[in-house]
């Protein structure tokens, strides 16, 4: 099988795609900087936590969608990955709420 070396054709870089990847990286860094600014300007509270969670979901969306390429995969795969995460969010909300009802001494 490996008697002859296969012909390797190196394609030129896809500048359009590479530019897009760097743009996504820029967005991720920008969101992180915004998170930093929020961390030191807003008072601690529910609104701040909500903002942080929102920005985290934005970042996660870019990483999973663009870097992990999920946005361009077949719909079945896309939803197979996303739908179970609903239960994780549900579990998180339920447990954090339950936690407030636990009295620690």
């Amino acid at each position: 099988m490996a008697h002859k070396e296969p012909e390797i054709v190196v394609l030129p870089p896809d500048t359009e795609k590479i530019k897009k990847l760097w743009r996504v990286a820029g967005i991720l860094l920008l969101v992180t900087i915004v998170e930093f600014i929020i961390a030191f300007t807003l008072p601690h509270g529910a609104a701040k936590t909500f903002l942080f969670v929102l920005l985290t979901i934005v970042k996660a969306g870019y990483i999973v969608g663009e870097f992990m390429h999920l946005r361009y995969e077949v719909k079945v795969l896309f939803w197979s990955v996303l739908i179970p995460m609903i239960f994780v969010v549900w579990m998180l909300v339920a447990f954090v709420y339950e936690g407030t009802k636990i009295v620690t001494y």
Binding site: L92, F95, V96, G99, T104
Partner: peptide, 12 residues
């Protein structure tokens, strides 16, 4: 992380 959330919210 959820366990962290539970324990953290149960602490003052």
């Amino acid at each position: 992380l959820i366990t962290y959330g539970l324990v953290r919210s149960s602490n003052p």
